[in-house]
Write a protein that binds this DNA or RNA. Structure first.
Lengths: 215, 215
DNA sequence: ACAAGCTGTGAATCGTGGTTCACTTCTTCG
DNA sequence: CGAAGAAGTGAACCACGATTCACAGCTTGT
């Protein structure tokens, strides 16, 4: 048996696979999913088209992984913030929403691809899974806040979904390729602040004058 | 000149065109955009595939029109409600949101196609235009409400987009083809009520106890 | 060095569904 | 009725990009 995969080879293969994933991510971040043909990705990764298929059974699988990784990074951040139990729930929600919005605005093409661009059904499934992830992250903090009387009583799953939707839709304008010629990063601060305020208001008790703790 | 289009012929052609549009709408409402090949639509309309192209330059144009008509009906309703100046703005927003949600839940497959299903870019453009329409409808009522001190001061365009997003996302779960096996129309009432409450809270003054007017 | 077997290649293939078009059928009017 | 021209037909065509595969080039163990 004159050939058996050695550690060195395994590492090189893994590195190539990595290059392909990274090339796919770059392609999306630069010009959107629509531009990300297998050929374009292969060219960018300096491999032949066929080689992509040594690493992934299909284009859909490749991009499912790309989406999964990119989204997981974002979701991890949001989840970390929303589940930091040392802080009050409203602060967690606000920070999570702000982080979500800021990061999206910082990488608009990628964010647009992850959030809204038409993609293969298999990739869409990945997207939906992460939407659920965001929803659950927010829902957790909402529950905590409800328990602490920081929020009014509400269906936390529904409210969480609504928050995710509000963030997504409100960002879609600024993110969409069309409106991407005239960047105005200054206005982002105001946009983010308004958006966060919107979300907080939606879920907080209306009456907070004499303030809280009516146990 | 032995042939010139007569009124009778013109009417028949128009009727056929109408049948095609209607067949396309039905196909979408029944099985989604993905199922709506030109052939399927033609079959349903009892015309040959080629005949579709006597009436529309391309599939995209046909479906752009289908989307435009279906969405326009919804948008008209929402706009009528949001611009009814005899009622207070919060009531208008609440009723518009409720109408939007109820109608979507009543025709889930169609609503899903109009709101979220992957479509041709040309059709997507139509969809975006109507999102803008919804946003503007809500934005109008928001402005009125701000002027009347019924809402806190906010960026009405942004808040309107966030409302549209919140409605859309929160409905996506119940609408999506996946979760469409186990209908539970009873729960719809609660869902709608919660959703409306979410939107109202997001935009109303928090402090409404003594109710201020801090000029 | 050599054979065995793996990895890399990219031009050719294939599937899909929108679109075309040569032809048939229908409508109009002298 | 018959000619002129429009509307209707559907099988064939085509574009596109994902996928394949026969081959070249490496790696490994003897």
């Amino acid at each position: 048996m004159p050939y058996r995969q050695t550690e060195h080879t395994r590492a090189r293969i893994e590195a190539t696979r990595e290059r392909i994933v990274e090339a796919a991510r770059e392609q999306i971040a630069e010009a959107g999913y629509a531009s990300a043909s297998v050929q374009a990705v292969a060219r960018r990764a300096n491999v032949a088209t066929g080689s992509v298929y040594r690493h992934f059974p299909s284009k859909a699988d490749l991009f499912a992984e790309v989406f999964r990784r990119a989204s997981q990074r974002e979701l991890d951040l949001v989840t970390r913030v929303t589940s930091d139990e040392t802080r009050p729930a409203p602060e967690r929600i606000a920070q999570a929403a702000e982080a979500f919005a800021r990061r999206a605005l910082a990488a608009p093409t990628l964010a647009y691809a992850l959030l809204a661009e038409p993609v293969d059904p298999a990739v869409e499934a990945e997207r939906l899974a992460f939407r659920r992830g965001y929803r659950d992250a927010f829902a957790g903090a909402l529950q905590d806040g409800i328990a602490a009387n920081e929020f009014r009583e509400l269906d936390s799953q529904l409210a969480a979904a609504a928050i995710v939707g509000a963030l997504g839709e409100a960002l879609l304008g600024p993110l969409s390729p069309a409106s991407n010629g005239h960047k105005a990063p200054k206005h982002h601060d105001a946009l983010v602040a308004n958006l966060v305020q919107f979300c907080l208001n939606a879920i907080e008790e209306k009456t907070h004058v004499g303030a809280r703790s009516h146990s």
